[in-house]
Design a protein around this nucleic acid. Sequence first.
DNA 1: TGAAAGTCTACTTGTACTATAGACTTTCTT
DNA 2: AAGAAAGTCTATAGTACAAGTAGACTTTCA
Lengths: 146, 146
Amino acid sequence: MRLSKRGEYGLRAMIMLATPSADGRPSVLQIREISQHEQIPGKFLEQILLSLKNAGLLHSKMGVGGGYRLAKPPTEISLGQIVRILDGPLAPVKCVSQMAYEPCGCPDEETCGLRLVMGDVRNAIANLLDGTSLADVTQRVHSLHE
Amino acid sequence: MRLSKRGEYGLRAMIMLATPSADGRPSVLQIREISQHEQIPGKFLEQILLSLKNAGLLHSKMGVGGGYRLAKPPTEISLGQIVRILDGPLAPVKCVSQMAYEPCGCPDEETCGLRLVMGDVRNAIANLLDGTSLADVTQRVHSLHE
DNA sequence: TGAAAGTCTACTTGTACTATAGACTTTCTT
DNA sequence: AAGAAAGTCTATAGTACAAGTAGACTTTCA
């Protein structure tokens, strides 16, 4: 039940980008800033941010003074979206996946014990991750800092 | 967030072993019976059952008329135990694992946003899997068959 | 005694994750 | 116009682990 490094790094980067800067304006950060702060190999992070950009979650600007910023308000980006882009389906087994269903070959899927339970697991994970936005995370972190 | 084939096959086999036979006595099954019924490569299943046996979840008998049976009543074996034996920790990241904690290197673990959320995910998975016994599964399947 | 079962260890193979490399494009500043 | 600062894109290397295979060994019973 592991989250890959891609997923982990991507989430860290997105959380960092969602964290309000001192002046309250949306953060614009460069790859290097994120990779240094979060201890992520730069070239690897580059790929990850590119995927998130191509998926529409980030905007970027090239050239001097460029960098990355969130494409939408942090309230509208869920952790579930991020993980799905970087790591694929949340479901533990494909036969309970919403986004990448595949039959598992058991005689009767409707009454397969494993499937019943894994469906519950999938839902628990999905509810949590889809129900938590970047704003929720930064809010929670902020309230711990008081 | 994937369950490995080892984990999947192991769960399937344990559920099959937990399913009450017609006479109501504990099932004794041979590797071949399980592997045929569940479409699992025999030699692979062999290893899996051996792990579960060495972990104390199964008893076996060698020789003619031998086979595997659960070492405890199905009410006392949780899916969480099985998955941990075959796939390791349930936690998505090591820094929230109860059984295999490892620091992730973030500046302050107590206020790390990723850690907060992944802790929730871990708990959701663990509550579900540790709270579901083999008996719960077979019971659920049985009630669907009416 | 031999067939039927589990035991144990090693090996192979494939694949996916992680990371690195390098050449390219865009943008700003001077 | 030039050059530095940033992101873009594709390929590839390395590694680890999952999945599966092989085979020789041991125990049990008829």
